[in-house]
């Protein structure tokens, strides 16, 4: 059971996050960077499946040099090895380019049975990578799941959406994306932290993956951001004095805002 887990280093949701003025991409310098929490859950699920079925867990990340910190965190949780795709040409890649790169990188791992991702990163929030990736790899996609089981060569999962829960099955290899209900991630152990630095991390460039730099990054992006503005500060709001018809006033306000 060889598993590839997609991980991403994101700005810490506890710190202030913003976009750069120059090209409206994420300002990675302004905030602390961490392994996205949903990826911790993805790693946790991979480790649990590995404990039950054996095999190897490979962590795959695309990101600047600094992303090695997020990779190390995943390795200290217990993953076996890692691939880090790092290249200046990747700056500003959209979801399509990112998925293309990840698909190529997954191709460098032998005998992959399962790709596990978080359903959506806390920074970009497109939530599209797992589906696009599955399409590019020609694999079944089992996305947004709260439970995963492997039975022989079949993956069984519970997909939870606003409409309800769907029970899905697919034949391995497959791409799975998990929601935050999937598990509680373990803390890396002190031993794990010490062992992580000895684990193998392959660093690959766009050229190593056989891709044309023009296909990725800002130049290869299918969409472009023309303008970005921070969310305006919260206004003072409207005060309702209850002189007997407070309820009606609130209802009126909500109707005015088209909330009811």
């Amino acid at each position: 059971m060889n598993i590839v887990v997609l991980v991403k280093q994101v700005p810490d949701t506890w710190s202030e996050r913003k976009l750069t003025d120059a090209d409206h991409t994420l300002d990675r310098e302004s905030a602390d960077a961490v392994l996205d929490e949903i990826n911790e859950r993805a790693v946790e699920e991979a480790l649990k499946l590995q404990e039950a079925h054996g095999g190897e867990v490979t962590v795959l990340a695309m990101g600047p040099d600094r992303a090695t910190e997020a990779i190390r965190k995943a390795l200290s949780m217990g993953a076996d090895k890692a691939i880090h795709v790092s290249d200046a040409a990747l700056h500003g890649s959209d979801v399509l380019a990112t998925a293309k790169v990840l698909a190529k990188a997954i191709g460098t791992v032998e005998g992959v049975d399962l790709v596990i991702a978080g359903n959506e990163a806390t920074d970009g929030r497109a939530g599209a990578i797992p589906a696009i990736l599955a399409e590019l790899l020609g694999l079944p996609q089992v996305t947004q799941v709260r439970k995963v089981e492997i039975d022989g060569t079949t993956v069984k999962a519970e997909r939870e959406t606003e409409e309800g829960v769907a029970f899905l099955e697919a034949t391995l290899p497959a791409v799975v994306s998990v929601t935050e209900k999937i598990n509680e991630p373990r803390y890396p152990s002190f031993k794990g932290i010490m062992a992580a630095k000895k684990k193998k991390v392959d660093t690959l460039s766009v050229a190593d993956l056989g891709l044309d730099p023009a296909e990725v990054g800002l130049t290869g992006a299918w969409s472009s951001v023309l303008e970005a503005a921070p969310k305006p500060p919260r206004s003072a709001g409207q005060r309702v004095e209850d002189d007997g018809n407070g309820g009606a006033q609130i209802a009126e306000y909500l109707v005015g805002q088209k909330l009811i």
């Binding site: 506890w14 961490v34 910190e69 190390r72 965190k73 200290s76 803390y187 890396p188 002190f190 932290i193 010490m194 992580a196 630095k197």
Partner: peptide
């Protein structure tokens, strides 16, 4: 160093969670 940063971050996460 890397170990120091990881150990520090571990505690930071533990405190938060």
């Amino acid at each position: 160093d890397e170990d120091q940063r990881e150990i520090r971050d571990w505690v930071r996460t533990f405190v938060r969670r």
